[in-house]
Amino acid sequence: MDLLDLIIKRYSGRSYDGTRVVTQEQIDMLIEAARWAPSCYGDEPWRYVICNKQKNLNSWNTLFNCLTQKNQKWVKDCTLLIICCSAKNFRDLSRGSNNWSSYDTGAATYGMMLGATSMGLMAHQMAGFDKGKVIAEFGIPEDFDVTSVMAVGYAKEGEGPSERKRRPIKEMFFYDKWLKKDGN
């Protein structure tokens, strides 16, 4: 699949097919897709806690119960719930705070999402969760920030991207200097 086609095909749907499971081989491919993302100083600040409904329902339910009720309604049939975290500091502590770790973790997570799309899976990130509860329930160290939770699974038959709109290119991309709304 052409890269641009893959990027355009990716969407964050809200209707999963609970009868289809994500295999360990597919999970391994998602991990590899994230693993090879670029990062500042090659520090790889991302960490993921993967809760697989098929392998450990208790862990999956624990994370499910950390989500807002609104998210629980559409997430209930996904196979994987994944906690996405980023290191607050570089591994080499002499470098101090890693101000780019969320950026790098976002790149790794996007790699994972594109990997999911390439395998016919749907991945949807969310911010609607109780961060404190996630930290407590899953033992997230204090030197990591929980950036999002991602649902992964197969889209329900008939689920597809609705009319997706993006801002006009001229509002987001500029040559040589930032242009104001009126073009100046």
Rank of each mutant, 00 (worst) to 15 (best):
S102P: 04
M122N: 12
R10C: 03
K165D: 01
R10F: 03
R95E: 08
P161E: 13
R164T: 11
G42I: 11
G132I: 05
Q69P: 03
K156G: 00
K181Y: 14
K76F: 01
V21E: 15
T109E: 12
F138V: 04
E142D: 15
L80Y: 07
A33Y: 08
G96C: 03
D28E: 15
M29E: 14
W36L: 15
V152G: 06
M1C: 04
K181V: 10
F144P: 03
Y110F: 13
M112L: 15
D43K: 06
S94P: 02
L57D: 00
N61E: 14
D130R: 12
I27E: 07
L4P: 01
W46T: 05
A155W: 02
E159L: 04
E32N: 10
G115L: 08
G128W: 12
S12Q: 12
L67G: 05
S59C: 02
Q125Y: 00
F129D: 07
N65E: 14
I7D: 02
I140E: 10
Y154R: 05
R167T: 01
V22I: 12
K170T: 09
F129T: 04
S39N: 06
W60L: 09
D104C: 09
K70A: 10
A107D: 07
Q26M: 14
W46Q: 08
Y41F: 15
G96F: 08
R10S: 05
D92A: 12
Y41M: 13
L63M: 05
D92V: 02
D182M: 10
G183Y: 06
G115I: 09
N184Y: 09
S102W: 12
D5S: 14
Y110C: 08
K181W: 14
K131D: 15
K53P: 08
T68I: 03
L4N: 10
R166Y: 09
T105F: 02
M113R: 11
L80I: 06
D145H: 12
M126S: 03
K156E: 15
Y103P: 00
V149E: 10
G106E: 02
E44R: 13
Q26F: 05
W46D: 04
V49N: 03
G160H: 14
Q125R: 11
P141I: 05
A127I: 09
M113A: 13
N98E: 11
I50A: 00
Y110L: 11
L57G: 00
N71Q: 05
G115Q: 04
R47F: 05
Y110A: 02
I140H: 05
R95G: 04
I169W: 13
S86W: 02
F64V: 00
A107T: 06
E157R: 04
L4F: 13
R20V: 12
I83Y: 01
L93I: 11
K76R: 11
S102H: 11
C40G: 11
K156R: 11
L121I: 02
D5Q: 13
K131H: 08
S162R: 13
L179Q: 14
G132W: 05
N65G: 07
D104L: 07
C51K: 02
T147Y: 01
E25C: 00
T105I: 09
N65D: 13
A116W: 06
S148Y: 08
L3D: 03
E171W: 04
F144E: 15
I169K: 10
C85V: 00
V134Y: 12
G139T: 09
I82M: 10
P38V: 01
S12R: 06
K9H: 13
L93F: 10
P45W: 06
N98H: 09
G128F: 11
Y154D: 04
